[in-house]
Design a protein around this nucleic acid. Structure first.
Lengths: 320, 320
DNA sequence: ATTAATATGTCAACCGGTTGACATATTACG
DNA sequence: CGTAATATGTCAACCGGTTGACATATTAAT
């Protein structure tokens, strides 16, 4: 029993295929009784118009590809949730791509999305070496990653966030403050968090030191800094690890060690309500990203690249 | 400058469209030099075959629709991550649908997925009242929800999980143990957690009481049970809330109150490594779900419905 | 009664590949 | 050298809707 097609509906409703199409798309003149007959036939046959056929003809899929490391991470999970929500409200669907931080996967996804004729892409995963981003004439918006000159970047105010976090720790009386961040090589605005940390420390005549994520950064951090007073972690997961390691070593938080994280995803705030953090406006990021993508999609000719930076907020918890 | 099509490639490579198609699909005889010429032309034109056109013809999209409440929740986030991974490894793409627990959205998504000719659906959101699931002849696999007779259900061993959790608390010497769960109306295997809790308490001649999620369940729980010794929460987020509320009330965990959760998502384990919980085999759930879906897709004729229950594991943390 | 608006039908081209039938040319092998 | 295998081309139908052109019929307004 094959899927019913438009012609089947037409036959059952005793009208022409054109009329059915007219009903479906609400164009031209349609009489009330005809419309009803058609709908009744669709109902009876359990008919769903084939979007694929439609997409082929109108040369538009109303699909947006979304590439991020993983939905497993609460921050990305929430961001993707909102992205999907905003897209849905505009009649767009989301093709989900978890790159898992692997460049080869990201490249494969990018190619897949092109083949699949998505109308646009929102990416916030890798960056380097993916020349496809540069070659592509596809509407793209990037989150927190510089992909190419012609690709707009949406991010929250990473510099300000770094500043807020660092200054907050200093205000709390800390002098020996360490920062933990991802590898510098990634050309991401998130490096600004690090710059802000270092600048702020310099400005206050304090020594600074940034640890990059590695297999042993946690032990190194504690072993090499016995006089440690505070840690500014570049995300909440890391902050949580620091706190746990401290606990294991009998170091009290916040009495002996103050810790502040970054991101402030809903789930994390629920699980660790005490954690001080810099909250990114996740929903806003999603909204703006889709907005800019839509501008590109709808007027690909006179679209001018604009980067957007959204404000962050310091959440003073009990870990600082 | 429009997208290049197969015919453009053919022209540039000086071969016939049929030959290009042959190269693309590796059918029939193709000479080495021709193949190279064609690939070179594709490269030069930056050509990507139009999957939409292909899908239309072969009547298959290699897309799987995935409907869950939200990627924002670490458990679903991780589950979806793995689902996407498994699908990708089989050449399938994932259309993401966040129902947000709203039945109307779920219904709309279901319809959208049909229109979009997805090859199958994996759903773990609502259940009642969505007759579309029943009417649909589409390959579907459900996670933890009974949708219809002909739809296979994958879940972890909820009864065993409830048993493990409850017994663990009893073993720890608790007598006054409360359970918190979602509304009973949902016909989900997760109700088995509740049944197991109640059965186990009965078996041990202990009083039992289940709180259903509401606006005030947390306060009620503490106010109505001053002699409370332990809580078995039906997921880790709730467990975390209980722990925090306890802290706010000056109740020590685990000394005064023991708490065990449910799910054991990676992110949660990282953020709350001390939390005792029942760990669901998330990756395994994803693998099996996709596996069963593929069986349906590939042999929709003689497919027999089978429900699968996967083992859970008790994680003894420091909150019990 | 005439004209205009409304309602529906027929037909064919098109979106961009895929596929089978069939023809033809080149190469390889016994 | 002849036959078979290999290589490529032409052509047309098809997947399931969409759309414009055009024809015709019914209804409404003047």
């Amino acid at each position: 029993m094959k899927k019913p097609k438009l012609a089947d509906v037409a036959k059952l409703a005793e009208v022409s295929p054109t009329t059915v199409s007219r009903v479906l798309n609400d164009r031209g003149y349609i009489g009330e009784k005809t419309r009803k007959k058609v709908y009744a036939a669709m109902e009876e046959l359990n008919y769903y118009p084939n979007e694929i056929a439609r997409s082929l003809f109108i040369n538009k899929t109303f699909i947006v590809g979304v590439i991020f490391p993983t939905t497993s991470n609460p921050f990305y999970g929430q961001l993707i949730y909102h992205l999907e929500n905003v897209c849905e409200s505009l009649g767009y669907k989301v093709l989900l791509c978890n790159s898992g931080g692997r460049e080869d996967k990201e490249r494969a996804y990018l190619e897949m999305l092109q083949r699949h004729q998505v109308d646009g892409i929102i990416a916030g995963a890798h960056n380097r070496g993916i020349d496809l981003y540069k070659k592509s004439r596809m509407p793209i918006v990037s989150f927190d990653r510089i992909l190419a000159d012609h690709i707009p970047v949406v991010s929250s105010d990473n510099y300000r966030g770094g500043e807020l976090a660092t200054q907050h720790l200093i205000d709390r009386g800390c002098k020996k403050i360490i920062h933990i961040n991802g590898p510098r090589e990634l050309e991401t605005p998130a490096n600004l968090r690090r710059d802000a940390y270092e600048d702020t420390m310099k400005k206050n005549n304090l020594p600074y030191r940034t640890y990059e994520i590695s297999d042993t950064y946690l032990e190194d951090l504690f072993n090499e800094n016995l006089d440690l007073e505070a840690v500014f972690a570049s995300d909440d997961m890391i902050a949580s690890k620091v706190i746990n390691e401290a606990k294991n070593r009998g170091i009290r938080v916040p009495e002996d060690l103050k810790v502040i994280g970054y991101d402030g995803a809903e789930a994390v705030r629920m699980l660790l309500p005490d954690l001080s953090t810099i909250q990114q406006p996740i929903e806003e990021i999603a909204r703006v990203s889709v907005e800019i993508l839509m501008e590109q999609i709808n007027q690909s000719d006179n679209f001018e690249v604009k980067n957007v930076t959204l404000p962050v907020e310091l959440i003073k918890g009990k870990t600082t």
